[in-house]
Design a protein around this nucleic acid. Structure first.
Lengths: 238, 238
DNA sequence: TCAATGTCGATTGTCGACAATATCCTTGAC
DNA sequence: GTCAAGGATATTGTCGACAATCGACATTGA
């Protein structure tokens, strides 16, 4: 770059780096959003041509986007059949939560061990956000999003990027399950509260307490979510 | 089906299900093999056109294969730049092993809790295979492959398919690291032996012992591998 | 009636071509 | 000599078209 005196941007660049991710990522985001908003139901086929036509582009980027979504578990690919929205079962959700407990227990232990100076304020801010969306009565998607962001921060702060990578891979599937249920807690304010003990334990630097707190937190969600989902399954196919 | 007397297939079907995986999977396997055999070095660019020309097909399946490899960590994608073979660092390997410990500890605990009736014989057979490749002095790749298969069985037997999925995602990266080092143990027979305590603990149904055994086993490999790799790094870039 | 087979429409699989972008090399000014 | 600007070249990004394959329905024959 020229412009060494910053004549164009007197106080640094004023624009967001303007997503250098190409068309494929945008398509992937659009699809993910559509799936998680329930506009495309689980099990439905993702017709490449239809999507491409709707979005006004060719099939190539749509295919690549679908492959991307496949690796985050939102979509399943069958050779010569195409892409299908991943179906969710209560059993799969249970497995997912069991796995999340394993990951996040380890992540939070490392987070506490490292001191968590950077992460703690972020967690507090995210907790405030959780209260805010609860107060404002925002829709399900926002609430789930805010919750997952909180847990993502824990994985991010673990110091081992691998935890974050894997968390991101399974995050969408979790979101999908939660949104399918339609409501997570009857009282979203109560749901926000359940994050308090986690933060307290981290702040206190008590590793065991933190692990127990996250264990209890996710474990509670696990039984609740799986129970709710089982009811949903029974209602759909008795 | 007619043929109730099984005249055509007197004792059931005689044909293997004839792999229905298309061109993309074959390309992906070829590429993975080339990378892990060291024929393409870490950091190298994967030229779509070159590969396509070499394999005698168009770029489309090559691209998709590369995307597939990306999700298993063998390849990195940079928009408008293309695909690059993932670079490995001792730090990344350390993170990888730390993560594997978390996963496999949890997996083996569940395996033991379930009784492990199906898995135990498979593990014994795989251990025999480990001794065999050690005895036969087979090449590095085979040894690493046999080792990873052993650990894969543990994840497979955990009862939660998620453990297997994630293991498979990171398995290739581990293999790559191991093969880059060029030798894992000076004495491959010794390496095979270190799997014995794991099997014993599982057979005894002792969950804690099994967790400790796998912890020790992977932990030992971790320090050894990372140490070796650091030496390699120092030699390459002092 | 029912199972096996043939046919058809729709969808994915692969391809070659062109446009957009990055990299590299040359060129020129200081 | 160094560095920036510009163009040449190679690579990726996207496209539209054709071939291969699948699932469903009609047809056939026992």
């Amino acid at each position: 770059m020229s412009d060494p005196l910053n004549l164009v941007f007197p106080s640094g660049p004023r624009f967001q780096p303007l997503g250098r991710d190409g068309l494929v990522d945008r398509v992937a985001n659009l699809l993910a959003e559509a799936i998680m908003a329930g506009r495309i139901l689980p099990g439905a086929r993702l017709s490449e041509s239809t999507i491409a036509r709707d979005m006004g582009l060719s099939r190539a980027p749509v295919r690549e986007a679908a492959r991307l979504l496949e690796s985050s578990g939102l979509v399943e690919y069958r050779t010569n059949r195409g892409f299908f929205v991943q179906t969710v079962s209560s059993a799969a959700l249970d497995n997912l939560y069991e796995f999340r407990i394993v990951i996040e227990r380890a992540a939070i232990a490392r987070l506490v061990a490292s001191g968590a100076q950077d992460t703690l304020p972020l967690l507090r801010a995210q907790l405030a956000e959780l209260y805010r969306v609860a107060q404002a009565g925002e829709d399900m998607t926002r609430q789930v999003e805010a919750d997952m962001t909180f847990h993502r921060l824990i994985c991010r702060g673990s110091g081992n990027p691998r935890f974050l990578t894997v968390f991101d891979q399974i995050a969408n599937e979790t979101k999908l399950g939660l949104i399918l249920i339609g409501r997570l807690y009857d009282d979203p304010h109560r749901m926000a509260e359940t994050h308090e003990p986690i933060i307290e334990a981290i702040a206190a630097g008590d590793s065991d307490a933190a692990v127990n707190a996250i264990d209890y937190h996710i474990g509670t969600a696990r039984t609740l979510v799986c129970h709710r989902f089982r009811l949903l399954e029974d209602k759909t196919a008795p």
